[in-house]
Structure formats: C-alpha cells, structure tokens
Design a protein around this nucleic acid. Structure first.
Lengths: 125, 125
DNA sequence: CCTAGTGTTATATTTTACTATTACACTATA
DNA sequence: TATAGTGTAATAGTAAAATATAACACTAGG
C-alpha cells in the first residue's frame, strides 16, 4: 500500500480500516485479518499495525480478544457515529481552508459542484 | 502559532504564508518579514522557516534577494494559479474521502450544504 | 570602511515514527 | 499436552523533522 509521507503511517492505517469497516468490506462483528497478515498486506511492521489498532481499540471501534483476533465492534450505533464524525471532519476541514482563502459560502458550494461536474465528465459512478 | 503534530511544521508554514499571500495580508511584490522575525513570530527555528521558504522560492511564489529580503512574487497570474491549485487540492481531498465512504456526488454536495447551514446558524459571514 | 540588517548554510543534538527482531500470553484443536 | 494461530510488548537500530547555535554572504547607509 502506498502512503502519504506527510502523515504518520499508523494514522493512515486507521483511515484505511475505517474505510473497510464503513463500506461493507468489514461488517459489524467481523474478524479482522491477523495483525501479522495486515502487516504483510500493507507492507509495514507489525508494531505499526498494532499502534493503529490499539488506538481504535481505545476508541471502541475495534474489540480485541487475545488469542482469537481483532473484531469490528458489533455496535452499529457506534459505527454510524464514526462515519458521521469522519464526514464532519472532512467537511469542516475543507470549509475552513476555503473560507480562509476568502471564498464565500456560496463560492465554496459552487466550486465543489464545478469540481464534481468536471470530474464526472468521463468517469461517473 | 499552534501546529498539527501530524503534519511537518515546514509544510504548515508554507500554507500559512500562502494564506497571507492570497488574502491581502501580503500583496504581490511585498516584502516578507525577515526570516529571523518569522521564526520568532511562529515560535519555530530559523532553519524550519528557511526550509518552507526555499521550497516556495523553487516554486516561484516567493523571490529571494540576498541581503534585502524575501518578496512575494509580483506575478499575479502565478498567484492566481496558486490559489486555484490550493482550492482544487482541498476539493479533491474532501471528494475522495467522502466518495470512499460511499457517499454519492449528490450526498456529498448535500452534506456540505447542510454543514454550512448548521454552521451559519449564529455566525454568518 | 564599518555596522546593522538581511538571506544562506552547516554542525551537532533531540524527538518521533518506523523497522527488525524477539519474546511472552492466550485460544483452539489435533 | 503439544502445536499452530492469535494478540501484546519490549528492545535496539534507522531515518526524518526540528532545534540550538554558529558562521558565512550580501546590501544599505552612516
């Protein structure tokens, strides 16, 4: 897996796993790949995987069972909260940045629409 | 100045200076504060400021004159390009992230509108 | 010419993320 | 009970960012 060298790898692993958990690749209650396997898949060290997982365990989005494996929480409410939080974080970030560049609310919305239209021309989903 | 410990400081300094250059605090052709003064203002080391500046000099957004100072480029076309690029980077990032969470184009736009409305309630600009 | 103000560069040190490696703890099962 | 598969943790080493500090190079003005 390729990483952005401006952001800690363990942090990007968290986002990767969030993505898997929120888009159906990993469902509530599912067992995650073994840490050593994840390390191989992502071509990083086990400790780096563990650092990402331990933060997620603290957050409650993943539950660990020693000797068995790591599991996506079965608490769908918490997962919904996680998704909402990730979306809001992204929106807040783009809004703050563009607002700081003196774009008005309307210009921010318009520029996003324009971006999506341009992008959509040729590879819609 | 407070920095996000997930992103290199020199990189955040670049964004800070971009902001000053694109919102009228620093106008085309303006002289920047001396590097040592910037270091004091931002509470970082001179070398860290210099690293940010040297990248911006390479990019052509800042011009250096040894013994005199650093100056915002007078090339307003280049500054306009810079702003456009920063906006596009932000839009691409938020779009990719939200799209990766399975939000449709319409949902992405709608969620941004909702975010702005909620935010606007009480502190419009 | 000298001095103050400026950009530029270099060295050594500290901190953090990451890696490599090893070991330990627990579970399931043959 | 032995073994394979799992999570957890500790140690030592490497690399990059940032710091502290000093020195060098150029400009302007007295």
């Amino acid at each position: 897996m390729k990483f952005d060298d401006k952001i800690p790898i363990y942090y990007q692993i968290k986002n990767y796993l969030y993505h898997e958990m929120l888009t159906g690749t990993l469902n509530p209650g599912d067992k995650l790949p073994a840490v050593r396997q994840l390390a191989v898949d992502l071509t990083v060290n086990v400790n780096t995987v563990q650092r990402a997982l331990s933060e997620m365990i603290t957050e409650g989005t993943i539950e660990s069972q020693r000797g068995k494996g790591n599991f996506v929480t079965a608490d769908t409410t918490r997962l919904a909260q996680l998704k909402e939080q990730l979306v809001m974080t992204q929106l807040a970030q783009v809004y703050e940045q563009l607002h700081a560049l003196n774009l008005t609310d309307e210009e921010i919305i318009a520029s996003l629409k324009r971006y999506i239209e341009q992008k959509g021309a040729g590879q819609n989903v």
